[in-house]
Amino acid sequence: MSATTPASFAGTPAAAKRRGGRAAITLLPFAVLISLFLVAPTLSLIWGSFHDNKTGVFTFENYSYLQHPLDLVPFKNSLELSLASTVVGGLVGLLIAQAIVSSRRPIIQEIATTFSSVAANFAGVPLAFAFIATLGANGLLTRQLLNAGVDLYGGGFKLYSVLGLTIVYAYWEIPLMVLVMLPPLQAMKPAWREAAEILGASRWQYLRSVAIPILMTPFISSLLLLYANAFGAYATAYGLTDGFVALVPIQISNLINGDISFDPGQADALAIGLAVIMVVCIGGRAILERRSARWLAR
């Protein structure tokens, strides 16, 4: 208990105002942070995307990519890559998370959580390099498979393709899925299963009527997170392909840094497109989370 007396809780309007003021002060650093790193860049992006970066004149020209099929390729690639790595990461991650929970060993669950949070963050150039060294044209595994009579690259596989990138992305998407699905799976009460059982339900009836409906919300919400995560990933793809793959984040970077294709206005417009997809994912997640939090509250 704090030293505050009950009387001061019932305080005067003036006291209430003071408290409100104090609350505002404590929120100030957060407000500064948000404006500096979220609001200001977003506004600048929006402004930039509607202006010609040479003349500074208002224009819709930067959004012309929406009308040219060729300019939409990065979006198509990014959407496909994100979808593929979300499906792979989501399903494999879900199975692993369920296996971890089924082990009923707290120590395994702790180790898995720690490992997953490390692995989920192992991305970027080091990961790209690790994969080039393993699955690249001259990678260790590629060579060994070749010796064993399996010619990956001869068979059409390329690490720098959407399929190759899917495998690389799965490397952190799987642990991320494990990380976000462990809590809801752990919150499933064994007594629900037993209650269904004693009421006469088969295993499948329990899954269909109880477990799947309860877990559907956190599952979809996790997929949205994986999707957003894959869509926004940049460093890994860049490290792997030196910028020669048409993905939205890479394209943005080329438009800002590139010599030939320098066009910050169009980069801003692309970034707005990316932001829209992010907002849809994260917003959908927020709505779903609220529901599942009620069901899985302990």
Binding site: A191, W192, E194, W295
Partner: peptide, 21 residues
């Protein structure tokens, strides 16, 4: 016999109501 074929009823300590119903 497994529980689902015993035809018994049970109330659990924390009720174990299905939260989605």
């Amino acid at each position: 016999l497994p529980p689902n074929r015993r035809g018994m009823g049970m109330v659990f300590q924390g009720y174990a109501l299905f939260p989605n119903m």
